[in-house]
Structure formats: C-alpha cells, structure tokens
Nucleic acid binder design. Structure first.
Lengths: 248, 248
DNA sequence: CGGTCTGTTGAAGGATTTCAACACTCGTGG
DNA sequence: CCACGAGTGTTGAAATCCTTCAACAGACCG
C-alpha cells in the first residue's frame, strides 16, 4: 500500500457565524438561474431568503419529509441520497455552491424524494415553495434557466442509469472518478485532486456496489498507479490512462 | 407453460394518411403543458407544427444526432433507449400520447442523448428548437408546466437508479411491471393488461439484465400465477400479491 | 413452407456479495 | 500525553446471483 499523509483537502472550516444574512446578496448573483436578473430584481428576491448553517454530517432534510422549501447551496458540499429499507443507500448527486436542491413540483407527491446531507460544513439559502413559484411566474428567464438545469440533471441521471445497467463495477467506478474530477478536480502535488471528502462508502453508494468491492477496485487502481488515495480523499494521478480504461 | 393465444392488445393500426396536419388542433390541447393556453394562443402555436408518421420499429431520431426539433407524441407508443458500444442497450422510458421528447437545452451538447424508437405505429408532432424557446419565453405557464414535467421525469429517473442499484433482478422486474401497469394498465380478461407491445428484450433492457434472465423470471412469475404473458404482451393477474412481492 | 424473430431452458463459468478478521486514522477524554 | 474507541479502509474465502453459451420450440411473415 502507498503511504498516506493526512488529508490534502482544503476544507475552509466555515463556522456558523460566517453564514449570515449579509452573505446573501453577493452570493445570489452567483446562482446560475438568477444571473439573468437585474440588481433591483435581485434585491427584491433577496428579501424572501433565509440562510442556515449545517455541520458536516448533518441532514438538511430527510427523504419522505414534507417538501416546503427550495434550497440553494452557498458554501460547502452536499450529497443527495436515497435510503432503502434494507439499509443500502444510493448516492444520487454531489452538489457544489450555486446548485439548487429540494426541488418542488406541482405534480406528484409533495415530499422530498431523497435526503440532503452536508458532506462538509455548509451554508444554505432557502425560500418557500410559493415564493419560488411566484418568481418562476414573474421572471420567465429564471424559469427557463431552471428548466435548462433540470434538463441537464435529467441527462446526467440517464447517464448514470446507462452506466449502472451496462458497465461492470470497475468500469462504473472509473467513470464516476472521471465525472467527479470534472466537477471537483483541482491540480495538486498528487495529480488532479478531488476537492471533497470522499469515502469508500460514498464511492460504493454511487456505483451501486459494496464498500468492500469499492475498496478492492480503488486498491487495484492504486497498484496500477492511476490514482492516489487516502482516508476520505482521492487524486487522479494519470487522467489520460484512466480515461482510456473507461472507454476501451 | 400456459397456453398462449395471439396478442390481446388493441393496436389501432394507424396508417400514414390518418396522421395529418388536420389532426393537430384537436391534439394540441391534449398536451399537458399547453393546457393553460387559450384557443387563440393555441391557434398561434399550431402554425409552427409539423406532423409525421412512423412505422413500428422505425427510429424517430438517433442518439448522437444533432438535436434540432422538439417532439410530442400524438398517437402510439415510443421508447427511448441508449445504446452502448458493446451492443447492450438500456431502455430509459416508454412514452404515451401527450408526452414530449427530444428535449433541448441551451446548456451542454446539442445532440440527442438517446434514440427514440416507435414501439407501435406512431404519429408525432414536432417543431423547431428556436420556436420552442420562443414559446417558453412568451408563455410562462407553459415553461412552468414543462419544468414540472421534467422535474417529475427526474424523480422517476432517480427511482430507477435507486432500484437498479439496490434491488435484485427479480425485484427490479416486479417493480418495472408495477410502474408499467400504472401507466399502461387496462382491465382485461387476463387481469391488468399492459397495453403496449413488450418483449422480453424490452423488459431486460429496462431492468439492466439479459433477455435470458428476464425470461426465466417471467416464467417464474407465471408459475406463481402472478402474471399471464405471451409473445410481446404481459398481463398482471394478481396485482396485490405482486406488489407485496415488490415491497417485502 | 421455410426463415426469422421471440421466447425458453440447461449447464458452466464469472463477477460480485457477504461474512469475517484485521489495520490504520483521528478525535476525545482520562 | 497516551490510550481507547469509533469510524474508515483492507483483504481473504465461501457462497450466490447472474451472465454467457448453446440448443431448441413456437409464432408470425412473406
């Protein structure tokens, strides 16, 4: 096994008092689907928001809970997962700042279909379902932007379905590492470092496999010198060869 | 094995000349996301549409083809599938009249991510990407309706991911039969008949398994008297017990 | 009436899970 | 400051589920 140093991740340990209302206006413009709005429109929307802080490991909301608020991630990383009765979870998505979650729909059940859990310390904005629908109605460009983002999420979900259905576990894990590296990758001394805490369990829950199998495959990739990994972190040492392995 | 009669499905063999422009106005109001529009607005939108007929087995568009038109299914059934390089497909969705497909997004690649194939003879309306975006912009309720539908598709895709990742093949197939029965089920002499041509291959491609395994499991369900099935058709004889099998 | 498509079934082989034991890391409290 | 315990990661071996290869039967089409 490779020797492992303590985590190379930069986890800016944001504490509760940094996650304040004052933070809002600056961040609001950063959210993709509000980019089409003017300053005065933003100010108007800004009044509707709440801001909350959660510690790493906390749940922002639970699966089957009544869905009343739409949320936007301001700082940190959040994972969306589904639980099953047998205790086997599946990790649907990893979110980074600017993404929204806890989506609401007039159709179907008004309960969250998944659990949102803080993967790091996080800061989250939220506002009420009715306020959100009002904004969609009054600002068509916002509705279109939200639609575009949702459409892309659907595509990505179809990608995952396709991978889960057609690829072997090692291939799925290689693909997952590739996708994570696009979203969270950052150059480092170890290669492309995935800037998020990521356990074997998380990887297993994304790939729909067991932690043991995920561990075995990660060890194998490490033996082949394609990745470097330690407790809760992964870096991709040789992205080209990893991509070759994913395709061929 | 149970003796099998020829198909009990009602396949109204619509031929090309029934699928005409004149059909449009009546069908347009049927499409969920146009329901919020007035007659005169519908007449306006109606001008932009094309109508086409396809035979069962035809492809309406292919994966990786440039995406230029949004389509609405008027008559018949369409399946959306993804191909993989190794020839193993996955069936993402089965559509019935009123549903739209070939979704466009300003973000990401402008190519279709899946192949749309006629499962029966079908009649399809379509219009250009720019026309569609114009409608979304000018009629906010339409944009919101499309968003709600897309959000629900995303939920359903997450459901499928969850099932694929956590359930055994028999459980997945039972769940798939349940979902299909909600969407296509119709009372018949055999029980709840799924009103669509459905091969073992289709079931296998939905469950992410091989046709042989799908066949074995269907035989097993038939032995247990939970379903009745023949060439390209399936009826659910005992929905309650099937549901119990899916949950427990 | 032959050919092709669909569905079925058996048997061998392989991939992955499961159970089990152990090693390492990190934070906490004695 | 060290020891402990919980959480995380690793590895082995047996068991299981599923795939794959193969052969064949029945249905539908021209």
């Amino acid at each position: 096994m490779t020797q492992k140093r303590s985590t190379p991740l930069h986890l800016s340990n944001i504490s509760g008092h940094h996650c304040t209302i004052d933070l809002r206006l600056g961040k609001l413009a950063m959210v993709p689907f509000f980019q089409s709005l003017s300053k005065s429109e933003l100010r108007e929307i800004n009044k509707k928001f709440d801001v909350n802080h959660f510690n790493s490991g906390d749940s922002i909301y639970f699966q089957a809970e009544k869905a009343t608020r739409l949320r936007v991630l301001v700082h940190g990383i959040i994972k969306l997962l589904r639980h099953s009765s047998e205790g086997k979870d599946i990790l649907l998505d990893m979110l980074k700042p600017g993404e929204f979650f806890g989506t609401l729909s007039d159709l179907g059940e008004n309960v969250y279909q998944e659990t949102a859990m803080a993967q790091t310390d996080v800061c989250v904005m939220s506002f009420g379902a009715t306020d959100f629908r009002m904004i969609l109605k009054n600002y068509p460009p916002v509705a279109i932007a939200v639609l575009d983002i949702t459409t892309n999420k659907l595509r990505s979900s179809h990608d995952k379905l396709h991978q889960l259905a057609t690829l072997s576990v090692p291939q799925r894990i290689v693909h997952i590492l590739g996708m994570l590296s696009e979203k969270f990758g950052e150059e480092s001394e170890y290669g492309k470092l995935l800037q998020l805490p990521l356990s074997r369990r998380d990887i297993a829950d994304m790939a729909g496999t067991s932690t043991e199998t995920a561990s075995r495959i990660m060890s194998d990739l490490q033996d082949k010198e394609l990745i470097v990994s330690g407790r809760q972190w992964v870096a991709i040492k040789n992205p080209d060869q990893l991509k070759k392995l994913a395709d061929g």
